[in-house]
């Protein structure tokens, strides 16, 4: 054990001893969750926002990937102990670790993505997933030929229900009689990486007449894309633009601009304009959108695009209020 600790401390010494950066530059520490920076979705987006900031703004950036949830607090604290000016935590699992460390280091700034926190030195960014899901629901309802669409969620948690609620509402706003079939991959965190199960769920939906399925299940979505390709149906991607994964079989993707949130916060910190508090980012801020590129261009007609953009503008203006699972649920609980 002793030699292990020794090795660990050497490693950390090495890790933090690179004094090559100019002492004036802003030090930013980024802590990713289990997905890691290659998850092609959520963490990847945060990582690209941070590297972009490094390139453009010349900050000093260190990234840590946590292979287990219990390592998160330790990683955050390591950054804090080395006086990193801004420490960024990605994913709702980081909520309590960030709050814990932020209380210990009240002079440092923190950014928490995907979970709320009202500490005086924490900025927390929450995305309006329901608005984007509503839009892809609209696209699905305009595209479906069977009037039957599907939703495949990863783990059954409120965040994913928020996607589902928005998606269903968007589809129903176009065609009130449309049927939405909802499946969840599982009740444990295995659900995010079980593509074979997700594929089976998608095949089940397709055999029941569903022709478009929206997947919000992390790595498991690969299985849904496979099923769409084999059954010649359509899937909708999530978090990052996934249209390129199976061109012709992915109708569109609901894109969440984590990179934007990370980049902007770093920029604000650099200019001394860092503001704590809970910030909601949605369509209006350009942080949520649906993707349209050369891969799905043939699938979305000009008519559909026009109609979808019109609805997007109405949501931005506040004319259309998208049902939010979080708010609906709070009301239920207070009754």
């Amino acid at each position: 054990m002793n030699s292990f600790l020794k090795a660990l401390s050497y490693f950390l010494l090495f890790f933090f001893s690179d004094a090559a950066y100019p002492s004036s530059s802003l030090k930013v520490g980024l802590v990713l969750d289990k997905g890691g920076k290659d998850d092609k979705s959520f963490n990847a987006s945060a990582f690209s926002g941070a590297t972009e900031a490094k390139k453009q703004l010349g900050i000093h950036l260190k990234v840590l990937e946590c292979q287990s949830d219990s390592a998160i607090a330790a990683s955050l604290r390591t950054f804090a102990q080395h006086n990193y000016d801004l420490i960024i935590g990605i994913g709702f699992v980081q909520q309590s670790p960030i709050e814990e460390v932020a209380k210990e280091f009240p002079n440092l700034s923190f950014l928490l993505v995907d979970a709320p926190s009202s500490l005086p030195n924490v900025r927390s960014v929450i995305f309006n997933e329901h608005e984007g899901s509503y839009l892809v629901g609209v696209i699905a309802a305009l595209t479906t030929k069977t009037n039957h669409i599907g939703f495949i969620g990863g783990m059954d948690i409120p965040l994913i229900r928020r996607f589902e609620r928005g998606f269903r509402a968007g589809a129903q706003s176009i065609e009130p009689r449309i049927k939405t079939l909802t499946y969840y991959v599982g009740a444990s965190s295995d659900a995010w990486r079980n593509p074979t199960k997700a594929k089976e769920l998608a095949l089940g939906q397709f055999s029941k007449g569903v022709d478009i399925s929206f997947c919000a299940a992390g790595s498991s979505c690969a299985g849904v894309f496979d099923a769409a390709e084999e059954s010649h149906r359509l899937a909708i991607g999530v978090d990052s633009n996934q249209n390129w994964v199976k061109p012709g079989f992915i109708l569109t993707s609901m894109v969440k601009g984590v990179d934007l949130a990370v980049f902007q916060t770093i920029e604000q910190k650099l200019k001394g304009r860092f503001k704590p508090g809970i910030i909601h980012l949605g369509l209006k801020e350009g942080a949520i959108s649906y993707s349209l590129d050369q891969y799905n261009r043939p699938l979305i007609s000009a008519q559909v695009e026009k109609q979808t953009n019109a609805i997007r503008n109405l949501i931005m203006k506040g004319t259309i209020v998208v049902p939010d699972y979080y708010k609906e649920n709070q009301r239920d609980q207070s009754k």
Partner: peptide, 11 residues
């Protein structure tokens, strides 16, 4: 059944 290896896919 699927088209790639995903970490811990044996689930």
């Amino acid at each position: 059944h699927s088209s790639q290896f995903i970490r811990d896919m044996s689930a």
